[in-house]
Amino acid sequence: MKILVCISHVPDTTTKVKFVDGDTKLDTNGIQWVINPWDELSLTRALELKDDASTGVKSVTVAHVGNATTEPTIRKALAIGADDAIRVNAEPADAYFAAAQLAEVVRKEQFDIIMCGIESSDYNNSAVGGMLAEFLDIPSVSAVSGLKIENGQAVITREIDGGKEIVTVPTPFVAIVQKGIAKEPRIAAMRGIMMARTKPIKLYEPVAADALTESVKFELPKPRAACKFVDPENPKELITLLQNETKLI
């Protein structure tokens, strides 16, 4: 069984973002780039499955759509333990474009399980996983918080309103994963970092695909009104304020 983990390259999640060129572009100055948190958890779970011989998982590959400057992020995934990587050499114009590129990778390389994070922490579209599955006309399961392999069959936990469901789907399929898929992201050890230098990154040139959307302007959240402080000895004042000003209590 072969697993593909799709990874996105995003600003560190503590970044206070700023924009340039009349608020049309992200100011990349001083930004630390990381593997998208959900993709990192997917990779961790994929590696856990590979570590367990009973699952029959033979390899874990990562795929990424991005230009050469994103290679350190791919090397990080290899250092964490992915066997090999594929980079589609293109600026991901939008989710549709990126999913079209990843679909081509899956068509050429053939995987049994494809894992995508529920969203990227930059554009928050929650789109690539589902789009990829539709391009390939294969099943997708969303809101996945658990993935096991029992007797060669993928057994998936998915979150539903007020609980969870255990579901199965035939391979190949796309698992769109969120919290719960792995406890903590696996960290690269020194040995992993050394080995990552020699692991292969296969380069794909992009296929023709449209971008269906265009981000034309960004803005920062409007500053909230300054905090009104209430005496800790007199919490009644807080409730009175909430009653009078918010009318919610």
Partner: peptide, 18 residues
Amino acid sequence: KAIAPRLSVKMKAALGSG
């Protein structure tokens, strides 16, 4: 989130989410 992205590809319709 399970349906909208698939629908986007099926209908070649741009998706704005969130």
